[in-house]
Amino acid sequence: MVTGEAAPAAALYECLVVHTRTAPLRHDVRHRTYLWCVDLDRPPALPRVLRPLARFDARDHFAGRAPTIRAGLEEFLASRDIDIAGGRVVMLAHARVLGFVFNPLSVYWCHDASGALVCVVAEVHNTYGQRHCYLLHPDAGGGARAEKRFYVSPFFPVEGHYRMRLPLPGERLDLT
């Protein structure tokens, strides 16, 4: 496993997104995509001409009003009495491409100044342009559970919970 300090400053992960509905009828959806994994303090520097093709915009995350994604994250953490003291934050998310973004889930691994993982934030977006953040404290295997507090799908009620596996990013990343 890669420690918080050893994770790359930027990586592009090819992904297979799988969604399975078991009731009232079983239905599976699978599609390929990619996700960026970036250090919020060292985002990839693309030439000016390529920036419309892939960029990260603070308005796509948290309340959408902070000047940077990191500032939005720190506001969220501060509202829960968490201070990562300038530690490293690694974000996994879709980039805004040609002015558009579809980003159902952004994940933030938040480390303190010594490099220790303090928490993980899972930011869920729905198709109505709303978002909700879950503050997680994964176990040693990267597992976490959160009560569902946000309407995501017209097919599912808000009741229930999420079971997540959020290991630190490395050469490979397998989130559930």
Results as ranks from 00 to 15, higher is better:
2 V>G: 01
3 T>Y: 13
4 G>V: 03
4 G>I: 02
4 G>M: 13
6 A>N: 07
6 A>D: 08
10 A>I: 14
17 V>M: 14
19 H>D: 06
20 T>H: 15
26 R>K: 13
26 R>P: 13
26 R>T: 06
26 R>D: 13
28 D>H: 10
28 D>F: 06
29 V>N: 07
29 V>G: 06
30 R>D: 13
31 H>D: 05
31 H>M: 04
32 R>W: 14
32 R>Q: 11
32 R>C: 03
34 Y>V: 15
36 W>H: 15
36 W>T: 08
38 V>R: 11
39 D>K: 12
39 D>V: 04
40 L>R: 10
40 L>M: 07
41 D>R: 14
41 D>A: 11
43 P>R: 06
44 P>K: 01
44 P>D: 10
44 P>F: 01
46 L>Y: 15
53 L>T: 06
53 L>Y: 15
56 F>G: 07
56 F>M: 14
57 D>V: 02
59 R>S: 12
59 R>W: 06
59 R>D: 12
64 G>F: 00
64 G>K: 02
64 G>L: 04
66 A>M: 05
69 I>A: 05
70 R>S: 04
71 A>Y: 08
71 A>L: 00
71 A>F: 05
72 G>Y: 13
73 L>Q: 09
74 E>T: 09
75 E>Y: 02
75 E>I: 14
76 F>N: 05
76 F>W: 13
78 A>R: 09
79 S>H: 08
81 D>I: 06
83 D>G: 13
84 I>F: 01
89 V>A: 10
89 V>M: 07
92 L>W: 10
93 A>D: 12
93 A>R: 03
93 A>N: 09
95 A>T: 04
95 A>W: 04
96 R>G: 05
98 L>Q: 03
98 L>M: 11
98 L>F: 08
102 F>Y: 13
103 N>S: 09
105 L>D: 02
106 S>E: 03
107 V>W: 01
107 V>G: 01
111 H>S: 04
113 A>I: 07
115 G>R: 01
117 L>S: 04
117 L>C: 02
117 L>Y: 09
118 V>E: 07
119 C>T: 00
120 V>T: 11
120 V>K: 06
120 V>I: 10
120 V>Q: 09
122 A>L: 12
123 E>V: 05
128 Y>K: 12
128 Y>E: 01
135 L>M: 02
136 L>T: 14
137 H>V: 00
138 P>Q: 14
140 A>Y: 00
140 A>S: 08
143 G>K: 08
143 G>D: 14
143 G>Q: 09
145 R>V: 09
146 A>E: 13
149 R>E: 12
150 F>M: 13
152 V>H: 06
154 P>G: 07
154 P>T: 00
156 F>Y: 07
157 P>I: 11
158 V>Y: 06
159 E>D: 11
161 H>L: 00
161 H>E: 07
161 H>W: 12
163 R>M: 00
169 P>I: 15
170 G>M: 03
171 E>A: 09
172 R>Y: 06
174 D>N: 10
174 D>S: 11
174 D>L: 11
175 L>H: 11
